[in-house]
Write a protein that binds this DNA or RNA. Structure first.
Lengths: 122, 122
DNA sequence: TTATTAACTTGCATATTGCAAGTTAATAAC
DNA sequence: GTTATTAACTTGCAATATGCAAGTTAATAA
């Protein structure tokens, strides 16, 4: 990802779209944040932190900046202070829904035998 | 993922299918391997290593074991020695195609302005 | 029988993640 | 308006994962 998480400056491993998508989103947390925003449409910092997966606050802050710098998420009130200023998906972020839907479908079918408590969410 | 990469033993963060899919595939390399096998249908160790993304050999070995232990990939000749014994996708692995297709479509549309050389592969 | 090389493993440096605690500033309570 | 509370972070450090270079092994080619 990026050391200076203020800036959107991905390192592209290749010109393959799949690899490039993973250059941006291929970690354990970025798509969890997107999932939260598909489920809830608007979400504050502490709401993200209270999701069952238990993201730690430093990683959360870093991923929110990263996704915001890539215009995948945005603050609902860009001019207001950050307290209670929730995030939402941009059009670019909403366009990730089919990716998550396909991943969720795959997981339900193929992980249920090794993951006893898997359920449907989206 | 897992320290002992012989064993399939994912740590599930939650019962959400999306999060669970990411528990298994949410890293920079696993889906690159799956992509190679969608593109080429059969691939040896050194062919994986020569993909443009440049996976290092220790990571490659660890991910191949991981994906094999999860029945996402398999050796073409399970009983033969590993030299030139290529890998292929299982049905479970082939079922990941829609996930990668949707990710590729998203990336082509939404990354082209920040990634000048992005192209279509699958 | 020897040389080559595919398929790994190992060791170590660097980067990323996780955990606990601390800081700041906006709002709520009085 | 002053004080207390708490949301939204930041910081420091330990643990884990990744990356790089080199080494090992055993199957096949010469």
């Amino acid at each position: 990802m990026n050391t200076d998480s203020e800036l959107q400056n991905p390192e592209w491993r290749s010109s393959c779209p799949i690899a490039s998508g993973l250059d941006i989103l291929g970690d354990k947390w970025s798509l969890i944040i997107v999932r939260d925003l598909i489920e809830h449409s608007s979400r504050t910092y502490s709401e993200f932190a209270s999701s069952p997966e238990g993201i730690s606050t430093n990683i959360l802050a870093s991923r929110l900046k990263w996704l915001e710098s890539l215009s995948i998420i945005e603050r609902i009130n860009p001019d207001k202070p950050s307290r209670n200023n929730a995030f939402q998906l941009t059009q670019r972020g909403k366009a990730l829904r089919p990716v998550l839907e396909e991943l969720g479908k795959w997981s339900q079918i193929h992980l249920k035998e090794i993951h006893p408590t898997i359920v449907k969410i989206i």
